[in-house]
């Protein structure tokens, strides 16, 4: 452990400012481990030297590399399984019944990291939607580096081992050198965009389903509330929001209600109370 308290404070302030993610005490080890490769790329002899240089001469590229290194996590395909099972067995059948007119489904994978979640969603929709239906997936992440990686759609052997059923691997990916690349037909259904969920969100057509998983846990309650409020405006009135297993809207934003979705929970916007029937009792 060579990271000084001052260096740790600098990094945690930077990461909090850029991403609203809080790196509390005890994360010094994580910070140092994640910054070793970043420091090495810049030619610095150590993390301490790298951080000293960047504090002397603030450099946006170096700063964004620090934020990237600390805000990205290894992700699995069909992570946690249950939300995907709920999507294919409950949510999509209901949406298929409600969207017979335009036969199109829009899904947002917010904080998509290196792309496993949006591509998993694309595989699930492709396998579940009846013929004649179309879908589009938007993947967003705060990290520009992650968005570039996700757009390439190439994954290492270790990455495709993680939670991806082998039948789905051989149907949706092709081997390219040491990697596996998402097949073009699937790749075309997913678009990626860099987005900071805590900043004002761009204007987007509304979504039928939003996956916002394992993101809110990093935010304080005010930030959680503001993110949930702005995402609620981009969710169709009969849409579905999926959060991480340790996350909830309860006690944060009363515009959502928790509903059972298969073996897990999802969140839906409370129906606006029609004018004239709002009895106060």
């Amino acid at each position: 452990m060579t990271l000084s308290a001052a260096d740790f404070a600098f990094v945690s302030a930077l990461v909090r400012r850029e991403s609203s993610i809080v790196l509390g005490p005890g994360k010094e080890y994580l910070v140092e481990a994640r910054l070793i490769p970043v420091a090495r790329q810049t030619g610095a002899a150590s993390v301490a030297e790298f951080l000293a240089a960047i504090q002397r001469h603030p450099d946006p590229v170096g700063q964004s590399r620090i934020v990237d290194a600390l805000t990205t996590n290894e992700t699995s395909w069909f992570r946690d399984q249950d939300p995907f099972t709920a999507l294919t067995t409950q949510v999509l059948p209901e949406l298929i019944a409600n969207r017979a007119a335009n036969r199109h489904i829009r899904v947002w994978s917010a904080a998509c990291s290196s792309g496993q979640e949006p591509y998993s969603l694309a595989i699930a929709l492709r396998e579940t939607l009846p013929a004649g239906w179309t879908y589009e997936i938007l993947g967003t992440d705060i990290s520009g580096e992650m968005i570039e990686r996700a757009e390439r759609g190439e994954f290492s052997q270790v990455e495709v081992n993680r939670g991806l059923p082998v039948q789905k691997l051989v149907h949706n990916f092709e081997r390219v050198g040491a990697h596996w690349r998402v097949m073009p037909a699937l790749r075309r259904t997913v678009t990626f965009q860099r987005m900071n969920l805590t900043a004002p969100l761009p204007a987007l057509p509304p979504f039928d389903v939003i996956f916002l998983r394992n993101v809110l846990i990093y935010f304080d309650v005010e930030t959680k509330r503001s993110v949930l409020r702005s995402m609620g405006r981009l969710l169709r009135p009969d849409g579905w929001l999926f959060l991480g297993a340790a996350e909830t809207t309860i006690g944060v934003d009363d515009n959502y209600e928790r509903v059972v979705a298969g073996r897990t929970s999802a969140y839906r916007l409370r129906a606006a109370v029609p004018v004239g029937t709002a009895g106060k009792g």
Binding site: S76, Q157, V158, N161, G163, P165, V166, Q167, V170
Partner: peptide, 29 residues
């Protein structure tokens, strides 16, 4: 090769090197 193994009757496939987390996830599948 993967397709051959599946055709022969394998149910799942883990490529070496694998992390212990990846093995657990495959068994969960």
């Amino acid at each position: 090769q993967i397709v051959r193994a599946l055709a022969a009757g394998a149910h799942e496939y883990v490529i070496k090197p694998f992390t212990s987390g990846a093995m657990v996830e495959k068994l969960a599948l």
